[in-house]
């Protein structure tokens, strides 16, 4: 079978955009896990709630695809900020209600509470937007939905599509990632977070308010998940109460693949998962007959199981030793 370069580049673009989106979610897992070693199972649902919040907000505002360009862009920016704030506070509240009382309990207790929170949020999602997938309110004008930047801006004569939506994902995600890196490595509270991740007791002894630090991690992770919710909503042109579960697990796989607790690892892992996702969805079928999107969950969960079993520390993680 001949290598189809055009198709490959096409799925590469989709894969990178998907990977960037997953990275926003995966960072939330990694931030929290790095500090309190909890798999925040409800994280995917926080992202779903961010998406639902965006649906309600945009529908309420009355801005639609017919409005002026400035109103649309302004509304999208406002929704992004508010959805991030909403999800950040939600994640913070979940921590306060369900995880904080279990800080000193055995490891599995907060994990079980997190699974419970995830189901509670899914049910709230059903109350909010019903149990069937919904389409987001139309705010992006029709001619921009399939707007191909390569044709329109660069006047390239190619069938490869780099849609405005792909660009939208990247221009939202990359500044957020840079902002997070700046926050964690350049600010005082970011330093406190890294110190707490290394050794919680020692950090507390140095005068770091550990609870505030943990709260910050939940706020940051939730905010990124809220942004991911809005992006995923328009990227897939649909929102569902189960969207968080699937995205959450794929993002968790990405975080583990990159080495959980490691911020760079989460981004690298996410790009890998995004590429695996898009290649399995569309590119593999010309090599393996019958292959397609229906096998993608098996492939990604297969990656999850293999990484967990053979290299639990991930690609970039350090080997952790179990304490007695």
């Amino acid at each position: 079978m001949e290598f189809n370069g055009t198709l490959f580049v096409q799925y590469l673009i989709i894969g990178i955009a998907t990977g960037a989106l997953i990275a926003l979610i995966a960072l939330g897992y990694t931030l929290v896990y790095g500090i309190i070693e909890l798999i925040n199972f409800a994280h995917g649902e926080v992202m779903m709630m961010g998406a639902f919040f965006s649906i309600s907000l945009i529908a309420l505002s009355g801005v639609s695809a017919d409005s002026a360009g400035a109103a649309i862009i302004g509304m999208l920016l406002l929704t992004l900020v508010l959805a991030m704030a909403f999800s950040a506070l939600l994640n913070f509240a979940i921590d306060r209600i369900a995880y904080k009382p279990l800080r000193n309990a055995p490891r599995l207790a907060p994990l079980i509470a997190a699974i419970g929170m995830s189901f509670i949020l899914q049910n709230i999602g059903i109350y909010w937007q019903g149990s069937n997938p919904v389409r987001p309110p139309s705010i992006i004008p029709l001619e921009y939905r399939s707007y191909n930047i390569l044709n329109e801006w660069f006047a390239l004569d190619t069938t490869i599509r780099f849609r405005l939506l792909d660009l939208f994902v990247l221009v939202t995600t990359i500044p957020l990632l840079i902002g997070l890196t700046w926050f964690v490595y350049r600010t005082r509270i970011g330093t406190a977070m890294r110190a707490t991740a290394q050794d919680r007791e020692a950090a507390a002894l140095m005068g770091i308010d550990v609870n505030r630090t943990i709260g910050t991690a939940f706020l940051l992770g939730g905010g990124l998940a809220g942004a991911a919710g809005l992006i995923a909503l328009y990227y897939n042109d649909n929102g569902w109460y189960r969207m968080g579960f699937r995205y959450g697990l794929f993002a968790f796989t990405a975080a583990v693949l990159g080495g959980i607790g490691n911020l760079t690892g989460a981004v690298v892992g996410s790009l890998c998962i995004g590429l695996i996702w898009s290649m399995s969805d569309g590119f593999m079928k010309q090599y393996v007959s019958g292959w397609g999107a229906q096998w993608t969950p098996s492939v990604i969960f297969g990656v999850l199981v293999l990484v967990m079993v053979f290299r639990p520390s991930g690609l970039l993680g350090e080997q952790t030793v179990d304490k007695v």
Partner: peptide, 20 residues
Amino acid sequence: LRGDYLAIVTLGFGEIVPNV
């Protein structure tokens, strides 16, 4: 595997079976 990792691997398995 440690407890929480084991939980996630079993979850992955639980998703793979219906998919297959």
